[in-house]
Amino acid sequence: MRDFAKPVVLNAAKLPDRTMEELDSAFELLRLPPEKEAAEALLRARGGEVRGMTLRKTIVDRAMLDALPALEIIASYSAGLENLDTAETAARGITVTNSSHILARDVANLATGLVLALTRDIPNADAFVRAGAWPGQPQYRLTRSVTAMTIGVLGLGAIGSALAERLAALGASVVYGGPRPKPVDLRYYADLREMAAASDLLVVTCPLLPETRGAISAEVLEALGPRGYLVNISRGRIVDEAALIDALARDAIAGAALDVFEREPEVPAALIEDRRVILTPHIGSGTEETRQAMADNVVDQLTAKLGVAPLVR
């Protein structure tokens, strides 16, 4: 039986059990089927009633928005919005929220860990001890000091800003790049190649947009140089993966740490086999506390926009 007193919300995200219970309690919740034909049938039958939508990876294009004429808000569980036609939602006056402000600290923490693991060669040092090589070689090779480095951060949003604070606390000199300068006491580079040339290590934290796709190009990697490092905790397609593999093969950069990949979960064998590369399976926001906070934010944004009493947790 339909509850006509509750706003209708379309769920297009895999969310924690507690969050699903909250959504079911606050709204008349429609679950978007994964099968295309079933999803289209649901939208034909009920799309006109939907006022809110949860989102993670589902593609929301103009055609889907046409099927949701009463839509007021899309609350994304993710930080990135590359699967959403944001120009069209803006034109239609649809509110769009995401979780970048919620997950920023944990993603920045992971990025900091990857920077340290990469520059201090921690995974290989661990393998060295486990292989029993230490007794025969008392001195492990010398590594690099973050304290002596200039680190370029591409994208000084919520994540980039949190990372810059952490890197500065470690003693690094932090610079940044992006579409425009911000009111911060850090050196700004409008040209990415210039920033790469000035940096010992480059960290990608910007969103995937048409203008950032492939931004870490062969030219940028060449500017970073044979002693330079790359860390990517944003989106895989911001890095030209073929150019990265080529640069590593030519010893044109010193190493990389990647949490995201161009065609994840597929990872090129060349990256897997290269011990100068640290690989993690897109775990930037992957802590119990942050994932639940991201889900709570979805519910809170929907209840606030659609006039439902806030939940008491």
Results as ranks from 00 to 15, higher is better:
12 A>V: 08
75 A>M: 09
63 A>G: 04
17 D>R: 15
204 V>L: 10
191 D>Y: 08
14 K>E: 14
226 P>K: 11
52 G>M: 01
180 R>M: 03
115 V>C: 15
290 T>L: 14
134 W>I: 01
205 T>Q: 02
135 P>E: 02
204 V>E: 09
308 V>R: 05
152 G>L: 08
66 D>K: 14
219 E>F: 09
197 A>G: 05
123 P>N: 06
15 L>G: 05
212 T>Q: 06
179 P>V: 05
264 E>R: 10
31 R>T: 15
227 R>F: 08
44 R>H: 12
100 S>V: 14
20 M>S: 09
161 S>D: 02
160 G>M: 10
156 L>W: 10
122 I>C: 04
55 L>E: 01
306 L>C: 01
47 G>V: 06
304 A>M: 00
165 E>I: 12
310 P>V: 02
278 I>Y: 05
126 D>Q: 08
279 L>S: 06
94 I>H: 08
147 T>E: 14
280 T>K: 09
290 T>C: 10
179 P>D: 06
170 L>R: 04
104 A>M: 13
88 E>M: 15
167 L>K: 02
201 L>A: 08
10 L>M: 12
164 A>S: 14
254 A>H: 06
142 L>H: 04
197 A>L: 09
112 T>K: 06
246 D>H: 14
115 V>Y: 03
199 S>E: 01
20 M>T: 13
199 S>G: 03
15 L>D: 10
17 D>H: 14
250 R>H: 15
169 A>R: 11
287 T>V: 03
110 L>N: 03
130 R>S: 01
16 P>K: 06
236 G>R: 04
44 R>E: 15
218 A>N: 10
90 A>F: 12
42 L>Y: 04
138 P>C: 00
202 L>Y: 11
190 A>Y: 06
170 L>I: 05
175 V>S: 02
165 E>N: 04
248 L>N: 02
288 E>K: 13
168 A>W: 05
95 T>Y: 11
145 S>M: 15
181 P>E: 02
279 L>W: 05
70 A>C: 05
232 N>C: 05
16 P>W: 13
289 E>S: 12
250 R>E: 15
87 A>R: 13
25 S>I: 00
231 V>Q: 00
178 G>K: 04
65 L>T: 01
193 R>N: 15
130 R>V: 03
199 S>T: 04
8 V>Y: 09
257 A>F: 03
